[in-house]
């Protein structure tokens, strides 16, 4: 299936994380301006589709609940209540929103970092050593990539409640430490980029196996590691089902659960509209900025992974 494209892998790997370096190679010369205008117009219309909900929440967060229902949703209302709304979000219930945000940062940041390190070590081991059980492990983990995350969440809850771990930080953090997709990507990347003769040379120089991994392996695999980290970070940040199943204590909620808690009260208490739109705005802005700023790093290891998949 991949035979035709495998030959491109070393080129992608060697280029590393250099986004855009080749985007112009198809040549800008000889294209009619009419085509450029048409293509750009299509892209702009699509961009509007992706931006509308975010634009709406920016506008909505400036409104009081009365204005929210009385004025045009796509334009600012008569009042400008943005700062009132935001301070209400930050102070409501003793600053529980800040707590949720910090929880999300903890789950996603710590989980993402450790998951990346573990996936790197495992993927490197499978790529650079031949040992009994190697293929079994790879097959097992590959199966794990295909298992729906929500299918394991329910039994995991039962398991964790027997261990007394349900409704603790650990119940969300521990499952976040494992990234089968990251493992898969790291193995393929290490296979293609970490040169066996380099490892052999380090061995001859007397470096221990773990030191070789930490000084040579990790450094060469960095583009893939950044990709794995970002995927895991976003995966944990966006996760809803696992914390929903695991957590009952509001203090432990990540931001997704917390905001949904507010939203679900809007039909009884309309003032929660202001809290919800303000909270959504505060949680969307940093992520949207991060996605755009980090966009170039996403493809670093992905080229390699996608090529071989």
């Amino acid at each position: 299936m991949t035979a035709a494209t495998v030959s491109t892998a070393p080129a992608g790997a060697a280029a590393g994380p250099e986004p855009g370096s080749r985007s112009g190679t198809t040549g800008r010369r000889g294209r009619r301006p009419a085509t450029t205008i048409l293509v750009t117009a299509v892209l702009a219309v699509v961009a509007i589709y992706f931006l509308v909900p975010v634009y709406w929440v920016v506008v909505a967060a400036t409104k009081t609940t009365d204005d929210l229902f009385a004025t045009n949703g796509f334009w600012f209302g008569t009042s400008f209540a943005l700062f009132d709304n935001l301070s209400a979000v930050l102070t409501y219930d003793g600053g529980v929103f800040v707590r949720w945000f910090a929880n999300s940062v903890l789950y996603a940041g710590v989980g993402g970092l450790i998951a990346t390190y573990l996936a790197a070590a495992g993927g490197y081991a499978l790529a650079k050593y031949r040992f009994r059980g190697r293929n079994l492990i790879f097959g097992l983990v590959l199966g794990g990539v295909l298992v729906p995350g929500t299918a394991t969440a329910l039994p995991l809850f039962l398991l964790f409640s027997q261990l007394g771990l349900a409704n603790t930080y650990w119940s969300v953090l521990i499952p976040s430490l494992v990234s089968p997709f990251g493992f898969f990507l790291c193995r393929i990347y290490a296979d293609a980029t970490v040169d066996s003769s380099l490892v052999e040379a380090a061995r001859i120089d007397g470096a221990g196996e773990l030191r070789i991994f930490h000084t040579i392996g990790l450094r060469i695999m960095t583009p893939a590691l950044v990709t794995v980290f970002l995927f895991q970070l976003v995966g944990i940040w966006n996760n809803y089902f696992l914390p929903l199943v695991m957590l009952s204590d509001q203090e432990l909620y990540p931001i997704t659960l917390g905001l949904n808690n507010w939203r679900s009260q809007t039909d009884r208490l309309p003032e929660f509209y202001e809290l919800t739109t303000g909270g959504v705005l505060l949680s969307v802005i940093p992520l949207a900025v991060a996605m755009i700023a980090l966009q170039r790093f996403w493809r670093g290891g992905l080229t390699e992974g996608a090529v071989k998949a």
Binding site: F50, V54, V234, N238, T256, L259, T277, L287, A288, Q295
Partner: peptide
């Protein structure tokens, strides 16, 4: 711009769209 929504959790995306 196209990639940005991926960073928005499904829950928050749904809250956004449900208002629309």
């Amino acid at each position: 711009t196209y990639f940005m929504p991926y960073g928005i959790p499904g829950v928050i995306a749904t809250i956004l769209w449900s208002f629309l």
